[in-house]
Design a protein around this nucleic acid. Structure first.
Lengths: 226, 226
DNA sequence: ACAGTCAGTGGCACCCAGTGCCGTACATCG
DNA sequence: CGATGTACGGCACTGGGTGCCACTGACTGT
């Protein structure tokens, strides 16, 4: 309960600070002003946040912990890429559960270069996490850059989905976008490992309902190519 | 020539600063100390470098300019992905032309978190450049995340190649690694653009030599899958 | 009930990165 | 030779971030 109070004050300070930043401009608001508006001392602000820019990312520690737990708790048998995809989805869900925070943060990071830098660094932490996870679990005969490339790829799709959502003011379906992107990644992986060199063998009995469905599907897709 | 002298002093200050950072530790060296060791005033250091951490990245402006020029000068007809790949290769070459700087920077960024953050931000700039280039030139029907994903992917491979080289003390061939990674990317793109989304429609007349050849070929390849 | 412990806090002094401003030395140009 | 422009030094000042000490209130064991 003490630990809940400390989180409450932390988030309270963060909210007040972000409101101030939005109203007066990040550079024009001193930590002193944030402390006064929050009715705490300057020293206390710096106990809860290691730096001024962290006031805009009060959830980053918990968030990273969530992703880490997701990866650690993934069933040992699952494909590592699938595990990372599941963790990424969980991460996105976590962001979506705090829409006000994410939206206000977006408004700030778009305008204040320093905060954008901090956001980039935050994402890098997340990428590093998934990268080391993949490096440990991916088959050792994979090219050395693959874990890094995959981690960057998945993070890019994650950022794209969240970015579109926040840019459109919450009108898109980021989870669907993420799923589509991840499907893309999965296909890339599959192509790499087997299907790109292996033929798809499809046997169809003539004039059955299944055959008709396949053929009309093919015909539809072929039309779209024109 | 004045502009060459200013670059000379800039690089001179940078070298002295990096040597000091390596010897005494980044946090233990004040900008004042760097200025003294370089026989210039503190104010002059801050005229050449916008911040203390930039002392370790004296080439970043030129480097970014190089990449930007590479992209801008790419022939209009070339595939945008190929243009980015060429620019990335040029970027890697530029790094390799300053091995001492890159190696010392590596030693510092591995140890000093603040400098690693700065490095991440530096890479982000480069990714943003290629991303906007790709977004402008990629076919508009491509998925929205593709430019971001491609840029991240290419940067990851670039970092991986340079990172391996620097970790192994210059014993690897980073340009070859980059080329291999880029070949991988190119294959992904080909699969994406045609083979994976478009159906292959194959019509075979029954019982002709062509049909028999196709069928035996398929059968042989299917056997290899077991 | 009482002393001890510990987490959260306030207050203060201090360091140092980064900026604005002004004066100066020197090179270039008309 | 005066005028302009550029690189630099000196200096004062703001503000982020830290170390240290003292206080308070809640919890714990005897």
């Amino acid at each position: 309960m003490t630990s809940r109070n400390i989180l409450e004050t932390k988030y309270r300070i963060s909210e007040i600070a972000m409101a101030l930043f939005l109203k007066e401009g990040y550079a024009n608001v001193t930590v002193e002003a944030v402390a006064e508006a929050s009715s705490v001392s300057r020293r206390t602000v710096f106990r809860h946040f290691q730096s001024k820019d962290e006031l805009v990312f009060p959830d980053h520690t918990e968030h990273l912990g969530l992703v880490e737990r997701c990866l650690a708790e993934s069933a040992p048998g699952t494909d590592p890429v699938d595990a990372v995809i599941a963790a990424t989805e969980e991460s996105l869900r976590d962001f979506l559960s705090r829409p006000e925070l994410v939206l206000r943060r977006y408004k700030l990071t778009r305008v204040v270069p320093e905060l954008r830098k901090r956001e980039v660094v935050e994402h890098e932490r997340y990428v590093a996490l998934t990268r080391s996870f993949l490096r440990d679990r991916l088959p050792p005969d994979a090219p050395s850059f693959q874990s890094m490339a995959l981690a960057a790829l998945i993070d890019a799709i994650h950022r794209s989905a969240l970015g579109n959502w926040v840019r459109e003011g919450g009108a898109t379906d980021p989870l669907a976008e993420l799923a589509a992107g991840m499907e893309w990644v999965r296909r890339l992986m599959v192509h790499q490992s087997a299907f790109s060199t292996a033929p798809v063998l499809l046997a169809l009995l003539p004039d059955t309902p299944q055959t008709r469905r396949v053929l009309t599907s093919l015909k539809d897709q072929a039309k779209e190519l024109d």
